[in-house]
């Protein structure tokens, strides 16, 4: 049961893009089309699964002081592997589009975030499932965003024109400002519905535990303390 939970958590409840808000760089930059979003998602999934597995295995012996550099080396190794694999086997158009963003998976917060928050504290099987779930959640969200942006800007999905009368591209959704607007709208809608559902059920809407600012003591701002006291 807990195995299943590790897997499904990343897909909806702790979706890396919509809930954890991690990895927004590829999310905003690469979802210009559904194919790009899907390709980036799959590459990140591969890195997540690989790095989660290796890190869960070595976490017991890595000195605490240098754990972050060691994790980054492991992650960078997997990123280079997927980069070479895509160069060899992915369609040239896809590799050309994802190009510089593949090496940048190294600094994608999801990968290091899951390594530090999950894989270093859990066994290999749970870590693989967590990586798969988080990767799948990332892929699904990126593909969905890609479909929305491609649809709004060219009227096509996966490069297949659905509305054939649409001949001139509408640039805003496929450009960076459009990405911010669309992602922001989706986040607002998600929060709105979550809150409404919570109020209907007669509960106070609280974001998932540990995923917002309140638990964090790094910047202990006075207003956060007040909020806590109110709880």
């Amino acid at each position: 049961m807990s195995l299943l939970k590790d897997f499904t958590r990343g897909i909806w409840k702790e979706n890396p893009v919509l809930v954890l808000l991690l990895g927004t760089c590829p999310t905003l930059a690469l979802t210009t089309s559904a194919t790009n979003g899907f390709g980036m998602g799959m590459a990140t999934t591969f890195v997540l699964v690989g790095s989660n597995l290796v890190i869960s295995l070595i976490a017991g012996i890595v000195p605490k002081k240098i754990r972050i550099p060691v994790y980054i080396v492991v992650i960078a190794t997997f990123v280079t592997v997927i980069d070479l694999l895509m160069k060899a086997y992915a369609p040239p158009a896809l590799y050309a589009a994802l190009g510089i963003f593949i090496p940048l998976i190294v600094v994608n917060c999801i990968v290091l975030g899951r390594a530090e928050a999950f894989a270093s504290k859990n066994g290999p099987i749970h870590s693989i499932l967590d990586g798969l779930g988080m990767g799948l959640g990332f892929t699904l969200t990126l593909t969905m965003l890609g479909i929305i942006r491609e649809m709004l800007s060219t009227g096509s999905v996966f490069e297949v024109k659905v509305i054939t009368a649409w001949t001139t591209d509408f640039l805003l959704p496929s450009a960076a400002p459009g990405a911010f607007i669309i992602v922001g709208t989706i986040l607002a809608l998600k929060n709105y519905f979550n809150r409404r559902a919570a109020i209907k059920a007669g509960k106070l809407y609280v974001p998932p535990e540990g995923l917002d600012c309140r638990h964090c003591r790094i910047c202990s701002l006075p207003e956060h303390d007040e909020e806590k006291r109110e709880k």
Binding site: S156, V160, K161, V162
Partner: peptide, 8 residues
């Protein structure tokens, strides 16, 4: 080539 749902 623009693929459409009609010539997919």
């Amino acid at each position: 080539f623009q693929k459409t749902i009609f010539n997919l």
